[in-house]
């Protein structure tokens, strides 16, 4: 076969859903994003999807490809065996139209963990905040998150509890707790130790499986839990 059969789950503004199939020549496309751009350019201009950089940096083009969350830009079709491609919007997000989903609730959760360096001196420090390579290594992997939301779509708990903070926000919380320049550890641990926080995670590990940047959110959440336990022990023995 010289063509890919691309089946796309489409949703109109009224919320009506249908499956539409397109035939795309194999020699014209190399990634799923290129496939979608080919369809939009030559077959159906009404197809809606979100993308920006096309090189797995902006985190815009996350979607379900053959039943699993992927970035459309980095899903190379040469590595894919078969001629049929099923493309659906990311799970656990509200669909705006076709493959474009509403990411506002995700970013609301992200903001809730205060994803920035918190200082007791309000940033008015007199000398440069130095880090050793070891201190840098503590958080650098977790700072690679591009906020694509694939982990939110892969998480089974996110699918059954919409109030659960989710892998990416919890990873962001740990990224700043692990940063030696940050002084907001206790504040963040209080935020993530609620019923909808890190304790809701059941370590299914799918967030780590689907992360395109190798961030490993499931490890970050387990480290958060370990810190939460430490905080509880401190409270138990009268620590501040």
């Amino acid at each position: 076969m010289d063509e890919y059969t691309v089946e796309i789950k489409r949703t109109d503004v009224d919320g009506k859903t249908r499956m539409q199939t397109f035939k795309v020549p194999k020699d014209k496309v190399s990634t799923v994003l290129e496939t979608l751009l080919y369809i939009k350019g030559y077959l159906d201009q009404t197809l809606t999807f979100r993308y920006s950089c096309g090189m797995e940096i902006c985190g815009s083009c996350g979607m379900e490809i053959n039943g699993k969350p992927h970035m459309a830009c980095s899903f190379v079709l040469d590595n894919f065996k078969g001629d049929k491609i099923l493309i659906e919007p990311l799970k656990h997000f509200k669909i705006l139209r076709d493959l474009a989903v509403d990411i506002d609730p995700f970013f609301d959760k992200y903001k809730a963990v205060k994803p920035y360096v918190i200082r007791n001196d309000d940033g008015n420090y007199q000398k440069e905040l130095l880090q050793t390579p070891k201190q840098f290594d503590e958080y650098i992997d977790y700072s690679m998150c591009i906020k694509c939301g694939l982990c939110m779509a892969a998480c089974p708990i996110e699918g059954s509890d919409e109030n659960y903070l989710g892998p990416a926000p919890l990873t962001a919380a740990w990224r700043f707790i692990a940063d030696n320049r940050d002084q907001g550890k206790k504040m963040r641990l209080e935020i993530v130790s609620g019923a909808e926080g890190a304790s809701r995670c059941h370590f299914a590990g799918e967030c780590t499986e689907v992360c395109p940047k190798g961030v490993n959110p499931s490890f970050a959440i387990q480290k958060l839990r370990s810190s939460m336990i430490g905080l509880e022990f401190q409270k138990l023995f009268g620590g501040k």
Partner: peptide, 10 residues
């Protein structure tokens, strides 16, 4: 929301 319910696997 209806579309969220459709996408949440439960």
């Amino acid at each position: 929301d209806e579309s969220v319910r459709n996408l949440n696997e439960g």
